[in-house]
Nucleic acid binder design. Structure first.
Lengths: 181, 181
DNA sequence: TCATTTTCGAAACTTGCGGTCTCGAATATA
DNA sequence: TATATTCGAGACCGCAAGTTTCGAAAATGA
């Protein structure tokens, strides 16, 4: 995304097209899976030309990353003072809904170091930070927090990637892991 | 791999070609990364025809999975009575060495349910079982074991996929997680 | 008002790679 | 020696990512 809102001379960018493309990308990937969704299909679904996509996004993966963030916007309502089980429940719910998108992004990131950095900065790190605050608020000792962050988000991704459900049992398991100590 | 050692009539399968292909696949992927390695390159490096590859493996991903297992054979010498830190150290070492192969397999598995099942059965599950036994031997209470299996292997994969090192600090972190309780 | 600039949707085109097909030579059995 | 199957090699196909081209639309500015 290159806003370039610099008010040039020509026809301004169509924000409607931008929205349509983001929505089409997110919806199609959730429905059919990343690999099955072609750029032509996204363009067609959005009623846009492919060039309009490639002018603003460098490729499929970056588009889907933006689409995911756009979708998650506002939906991530983690209040500061939230119990760990409640936090985990919300995170698991969101991750399940956006599952196909998350998985495909993580997968593509393995073939593309630049994308991997973006995923890390924009998806991974902010959520780690949120969990750290939650653990702090839950009274977990500082020296145990970092290990728990890796254990919890690690297990979450591991299960997501291996098609194992992020259900209530899993939430209890992780909450129990944090509690003892 | 379809052994088909049924002693048919024609020319027998060249085991030298099989070995050369597996070695070429593993080496090339470790060196250059999965996405950069083409089937033509593997065939050329192995001095084999592409048809010889496709006769015995259904596709690139399955070939690489076999190549990984072939490489790991014998290298996984987890003795029954091993301390958890020692176990983790060995696992991290192996995972680091085979890192590019592991990552690409996990990535490809996100686009291919059949491959995902194979990875789970042949890579994931056996190692979970080994860790379970190790935790049992270390005296971890049964009700905590399953959560720890997910936490530890989850964190390991999470770090592997996010390019974070599986170093001594990580081993200590996970060992500490298992110890408290 | 009208030239200029930039975007738009649409579609043809290029490229690269996974995978298939074909071929003659090699190597086994019966 | 006839048959069957593999071998290496390379031409070939199909599909999707990404590029280029085109005429129309929508903004600026003189």
């Amino acid at each position: 995304m290159d806003s370039s809102d610099g008010k040039g001379r020509g026809r301004p960018r169509s924000d409607a097209a931008r929205r349509a493309i983001l929505d089409a990308a997110y919806d199609l990937v959730v429905m059919h899976g990343y690999a099955e969704v072609t750029m032509d299909a996204i363009a067609a679904q959005a009623g846009a030309g492919k060039q309009t996509i490639y002018r603003w996004w460098p490729g499929k993966a970056d588009l889907v990353l933006d689409a995911l963030e756009d979708w998650a916007e506002g939906r991530i309502t983690v209040t500061e003072t939230e119990s760990l089980p409640s936090f985990l429940h919300k995170v698991c719910e969101g991750a399940t809904r956006a599952g196909p998108v998350l998985r495909s992004l993580m997968a593509q990131a393995q073939f593309d170091a630049a994308l991997r950095d973006k995923v890390k900065v924009r998806l991974i790190e902010p959520r780690r930070e949120a969990l750290r605050r939650c653990l702090a608020h839950a009274g977990v000792e500082p020296r145990h927090r970092e290990g728990l962050v890796y254990a919890i988000y690690g297990a979450l991704w591991y299960r997501l990637l291996m098609d194992e459900p992020l259900d209530a049992a899993f939430v209890r398991q992780m909450a129990a892991l944090a509690r003892r100590g």
